[in-house]
Structures are given as structure tokens and as C-alpha cells.
Amino acid sequence: MSVDAGDGDVLTAAVRTADGTGYAAYNERADGSVAPFYVVYADSDRTDRYGYICGACGSLAVGMDPMGRLDCAECDNSRKAAQWDAAYL
């Protein structure tokens, strides 16, 4: 991990993705049932969002549905939907 020079508390780590190298932003997290999910960017400038990395197992196989629910395909870590449409029920 390396500390971003612009802000001392911003931690970024390079991670291997299917497309090459991604950058996990450990200060951008979404709470999960087991461990947090961290945002992964395709570039070190954090302009192109790639997806999420699971904090429990380190997998990038994290799926998100239209309601914002996150599920890791490798372990039982998940996050409930941030919002939902009552008309759907």
C-alpha cells in the first residue's frame, strides 16, 4: 500500500485485475456482513471506477444489482440494498 501525497489518510493499493492493474481505495468502503467492500479504480488517479474488492477474501468477484446490493461470489460477504422500491414488493 502507498499513502497518497495529496491526503495523508488516503490509502491506495495496487491489485491485479483481469484487465491488468487496479487500485483499491481503502478509504472508500461499503460495510458488508463479514467485512467491508472497497472501491477499486482502473487508474491511480481514481477517475475510472472498476468495481469492488471483498475485504474478507480479497476477491474481485463482487456483483452489484441495480438496488445497490453487493455479493461476493467467493465467500458469504454481502451488503443489503442501500435503497429499494416499495412498488416492486
Score class of each variant (00 low, 15 high):
S2H: 11
A30N: 07
R49P: 01
F37W: 03
R16A: 14
D9S: 12
L60N: 06
D85V: 12
D76Y: 02
G58Y: 09
V40C: 02
G22V: 01
A30Q: 11
R79E: 09
M64F: 07
L11Q: 04
D7T: 04
M64C: 14
R79A: 10
L60H: 08
R49H: 04
M64T: 12
L60V: 11
K80D: 11
D45E: 15
R16P: 09
I53A: 10
M67G: 12
T21D: 13
A87R: 12
G58N: 08
V40Y: 01
D19P: 03
D4K: 09
Y50T: 00
A30E: 09
A14H: 12
R69S: 08
Y88G: 04
D71V: 07
C57W: 10
Y38D: 00
A82I: 12
M64Y: 07
E28L: 15
G32L: 05
R29E: 09
T12Y: 06
V34S: 12
D71K: 03
A30D: 10
S33W: 06
A73E: 07
S59R: 06
G68L: 14
V39P: 00
R46I: 09
A61D: 14
A87F: 11
T47H: 07
D9Y: 13
S44C: 10
G8M: 06
R69W: 03
A56L: 03
R69H: 06
R79D: 04
E74C: 13
R29V: 08
S2R: 14
G8V: 08
G68E: 11
Y52Q: 00
A18F: 15
R79G: 07
M1Y: 12
G20K: 09
A25V: 05
A82V: 13
T21G: 07
D76H: 04
Y38P: 01
G51I: 04
V10D: 07
D45S: 15
N77M: 01
E28S: 15
G68D: 13
G22Y: 00
T21W: 14
V39M: 09
A13I: 08
W84I: 00
R69D: 03
V40A: 02
S33N: 05
M64L: 13
S33Y: 07
A13Y: 08
P66K: 05
N27E: 13
V3L: 10
M1P: 04
V40Q: 01
V62Q: 04
C57N: 08
A35W: 03
D48M: 01
D19L: 13
L11E: 02
F37P: 00
V3W: 09
W84T: 02
G20D: 02
E74S: 14
R16K: 13
T17E: 02
G6L: 04
V3D: 05
V40K: 01
T12F: 09
R46E: 13
F37G: 00
S2C: 08
Y88T: 11
R46C: 12
L11K: 09
Y38K: 02
D43A: 06
G63H: 08
D76M: 02
Q83Y: 15
D19K: 14
V10P: 00
I53F: 10
C72L: 02
Y26I: 05
S33E: 06
A61H: 12
A30W: 11
A42E: 09
P36M: 06
